[in-house]
Amino acid sequence: MFSDKTYENIMSHMLGRVGADVDKREGSVIYDALAPCAYELAQTYYNLNQFLDLVFGDTASGEYLDRVVADYGISRKAATHAVRKVETNGTVNIGTRWGINDTTYKITELTATNVYSAICEQEGDIGNLYDGALENIDNLAGVTAVLTDVITSGADEETDDNLRSRFYAKAQAPSTSGNADHYKEWALKVQGTGNAKVLPLWNGPGTVKVLVVDSNVEIDESLPNSVAAFIETVRPIGAAVTVQSPDCVPITISANIWLDGSRNYNDVQASFRIMVAEYLNSLVFRTYSVSHAKVGSLLLDTAGVKDYDSLLVNGGTANITIGETQVPTVGTISLTEVD
Rank of each mutant, 00 (worst) to 15 (best):
F2Y: 08
F2N: 00
S3V: 04
N9E: 06
H13N: 14
M14V: 06
L15R: 05
V18R: 01
D21S: 11
V22C: 08
V22P: 08
D23S: 10
K24H: 07
E26K: 08
E26H: 01
G27W: 07
V29H: 13
A33N: 02
A38G: 14
L41C: 10
L48A: 04
L54D: 02
V55A: 06
F56C: 00
G57M: 12
G57K: 07
T59S: 13
T59K: 03
G62N: 14
L65H: 09
R67A: 15
S75D: 06
R76A: 10
A78D: 07
V86Y: 11
E87G: 03
V92G: 13
T96P: 06
R97W: 05
T103K: 11
T104L: 06
Y105D: 12
Y105V: 10
I107L: 10
T108F: 05
S117T: 14
S117W: 11
I119G: 05
V143Q: 14
V150N: 13
S153E: 03
G154H: 01
E157C: 04
D160S: 03
R164I: 01
S165N: 11
A169I: 05
A169P: 00
G178H: 05
A180N: 03
Y183Q: 03
E185L: 15
A187W: 02
N195E: 11
A196M: 04
V198R: 00
P200F: 04
N203D: 15
P205N: 13
G206N: 02
G206F: 02
T207Y: 02
D214R: 03
P224G: 04
S226F: 04
V227K: 05
A229Y: 02
Q244Y: 08
S245V: 03
A255Q: 08
W258N: 11
N264A: 03
N266Q: 14
N266F: 04
D267A: 14
I274C: 09
R286S: 13
R286K: 15
K294E: 15
L300Y: 12
G304V: 05
S310Q: 13
L311P: 15
I322N: 07
T336E: 10
